[in-house]
């Protein structure tokens, strides 16, 4: 674990060094650019709040992905589960408007988690029932989910007027409050940290978690020990799907306050990135998600202040993933 943490640190360092070289190549000072990212991500309470909000979906979805990967289930369907979760939250809030914020938010987030779990369950059913590789199923379902959201917004759930597809504004009772005054952040980050803590306990302190780890280490050993692989797959997929759906619901209720086409674009793949960077350890996904969230929050101020294109962030993310994969490889 210790050496793995060190190798992952090297992976991040190497990615950042490559990014520095790219910045220098375009005629800017890398240190200046990184300073601008840091100030944009944590230079003021408001900046920190933006970082925390950006971190939330990656943390929620990433912890679930980490759990699946631990069990050897390569679930790359978070993207679709987030989209369907957002659809569930928006539908619940619009179809059943209630006065009480507690009920409205509770119902919408429950709908989000259930919708996400159902979408992941569909993937599990096709994977287990028809012996289709889970990566192909989850990948293909991502596109179908995204188009389903667009179809819903072009039809019953849509509101005209914008240049893109969106739903009407949700009833005010369903909006997630921003209780930390100076930060301007919604409480989703707390849900995220609680979820990753809970998953970590589940993984290391429960019978189910032990079974997941055995299955991840060796399918043969798990089968020989009498563990039911289908039951484990169902459990991990439904949990991860519920968390990803919740991430989508929180994004809709806390940030946009309506459903917007493509609101989940790229989230699922970044959830995979933070799961890897956190060495598939749910608690370690917290700093990993924070790293990616802060990078994204800071990238715009880097572009504004120093003139370095903000797409540098995707370069850092992609390289970090590639290096982390190489660092985690079995030797």
């Amino acid at each position: 674990m210790n050496t793995l943490a060190f190798r992952l640190f090297l992976a991040v360092l190497l990615a950042v060094l490559c990014a520095a070289a790219l910045i220098a190549l375009s005629g800017h000072n890398p240190l200046e650019a990184f300073a601008a990212i840091a100030s944009g991500a944590a230079g003021s309470p408001h900046a920190l709040g933006v970082s925390l909000n950006k971190t939330t979906p990656y943390l929620l979805a990433g912890s679930g992905v980490a759990l699946c990967f631990r069990a050897g289930i390569i679930n790359i369907g978070a993207e679709g589960q987030i989209a369907i979760g957002g659809l569930g939250a928006a539908t619940a809030a619009l179809v059943w408007p209630v006065e009480s914020p507690v009920v409205a938010i509770g119902v919408a987030l429950l709908a989000a988690a259930l919708a996400g779990a159902a979408w992941a369950g569909l993937a599990a059913a096709i994977h287990l029932g028809r012996h289709v590789h889970e990566v192909l199923v989850t990948l293909l379902l991502n596109f179908i989910a995204m188009l389903l959201v667009q179809q819903a917004l072009a039809g019953a759930l849509g509101a005209p007027g914008a240049g893109f597809l969106q739903s009407p504004l949700l009833p005010r009772a369903a909006w997630l409050a921003h209780p930390f005054a100076e930060l301007g952040a919604h409480p989703g980050i707390l849900v995220g940290v609680a979820a990753s803590g809970g998953l970590s306990l589940l993984l290391w302190r429960s019978r189910f978690g032990f079974a997941l780890r055995v299955a991840g280490a060796s399918r043969q050993a798990a089968a020989y020990a009498g563990l039911s692989l289908p039951a484990l797959t169902w459990g991990a997929m439904l949990l991860a799907g519920a968390l990803a759906g919740l991430a989508g619901g929180i994004e809709v209720l806390g940030i946009h306050r309506r459903l917007i086409e493509g609101f989940s674009l790229g989230f699922g793949f970044k959830a995979v990135a933070v799961a890897l960077l956190g060495a598939l350890e749910p608690l370690a996904v917290v700093p990993a998600a924070l790293f990616v969230g802060m990078l994204e929050a800071g990238s715009l101020s880097m572009q504004r202040q120093v003139g370095v294109p903000s797409s540098l962030v995707a370069v850092i993310e992609g390289l970090t993933m590639l290096f982390a994969l190489a660092a985690m490889a079995r030797r």
């Binding site: 790219l22 390569i74 990566v135 793949f269 990135a273 797409s311 995707a314 992609g318 590639l322």
Partner: peptide, 17 residues
């Protein structure tokens, strides 16, 4: 698969950059 995904993210970033 995950390697492929990572390469896609990298390619999108690096071409835009």
């Amino acid at each position: 698969m995950v390697t492929g995904l990572s390469a896609n993210i990298f390619a999108a970033g690096v071409t835009s950059y």
